[in-house]
Design a protein around this nucleic acid. Structure first.
Lengths: 122, 122, 122, 122
DNA sequence: GTGGTCTAGACCACG
DNA sequence: GTGGTCTAGACCACA
């Protein structure tokens, strides 16, 4: 699993790491129980400060995606909390994206096509 | 058209204003040719500095959603540029939202229902 | 000679009027000695304040393009001052335009083609 | 790379900064990947408020000329978007400049010479 | 009246 | 250290 960081993105690096890992889990590239690289290893690999990786892991832990085990380090959680709902922050974002897309002339049909594609991919 | 600001959001105020206005246009609450409140009036109404409103208007202008007229102030553009595509930043966001939603146990069907709802609403 | 005004342009209206008239002279649509509409008539035609038209005429007079005659009103000057040089403000602008065009990948050849075209047109 | 500001110009300071930097890139004085001075440093150097420099940098960023890196500050973009066309605002300006130059007695040949010179210089 | 620009100073998140 | 955001108040050109 390779994590790609865009130094020039407006999204903070620790969030980018978080997003990539969530995407990895969602797409099946990272499996429940699987170990994540250590903070230090990942920091070295990406070439960033380990504080930043640590921040990403803490966020993922707090959100319930991973567990930190004294022996194994960080591992993907077996049972991720599922309530079957789109969380409210994401719903707001989705609303914004749809508003903008509508104004850009994207049809509902095309938008749904894109959603289906992304659901398959990851 | 009421613009609501969340003081505790980490989204900058000028972005929130921008988003609300885009949402208003998309949902039909703001019609092409319609006048927006003046910079000063809106600033007073929301209780923020007028520079912040001005920043929002300039962003909207630059993005092609509104025009500024020396007499009438800011007005919604009649023809908003449409390329029929979801812009790439939004596509990335959508990808992230779908990954997170999948992990939260949201089915593709439910997600699409939500999209359809938002497409109708706004 | 029709003068078109863009209410939404960043260029002040009085400047737009000035530019249109200069363009008219340059392209031959307005001939030396020809009378311009009165301030009031033009203001009415365009649908703007006559102060604005007056400002445009004053500018044109000051720049040596027109003369104001008590009887005939404003007329295009027979002999417009010619020093055969690009004035320094325009040279600066041209420099900026060329810098931007170069970065946009416009070849020198294409740029010169455009110049030739504009020289023919107006 | 020295940035010169004309306090008496009617061109806003942030635009002057933008223009100087674009000119620097176009002429090769600023190379892709090169770091720009920090917002604060440049503000201090020119003797203006840092908000003004920030505004210039944000404009350049939005126009695709630079990127901002959290560590390195602002850097010149490696790949600047090229569509090979003179943008329409610049085309209008060019038209105006040519009209005025024609009336000032500048021959097409001389104008093109100037263009060639500017193309070489910067 | 309008928007646009600028200042001086503050606070913040990020890394 | 960096850029990003925001404020309170000022001045300006335009119409």
């Amino acid at each position: 699993m390779i994590i790609r960081i865009d130094d020039y993105s407006d999204v903070p690096i620790y969030q980018q790491i978080r997003n990539e890992i969530i995407n990895g889990i969602s797409s099946g590239k990272l499996k429940p129980g699987e170990q994540l690289p250590t903070v230090r290893a990942l920091a070295l690999e990406i070439g960033i400060n380990s504080m930043t990786v640590s921040k990403a892991y803490q966020l993922l832990k707090q959100e319930g995606y991973i567990l930190t085990d004294r022996k194994k380090g960080a591992v993907i959680r077996e049972m991720i909390k599922q309530d079957g709902k789109i969380n409210s922050a994401n719903k707001n974002e989705l609303k914004r994206i749809i508003s903008e897309s509508k104004l850009a002339g994207v049809s509902e049909k095309d938008f749904i096509e894109e959603v289906k594609l992304l659901y398959k991919e990851g």
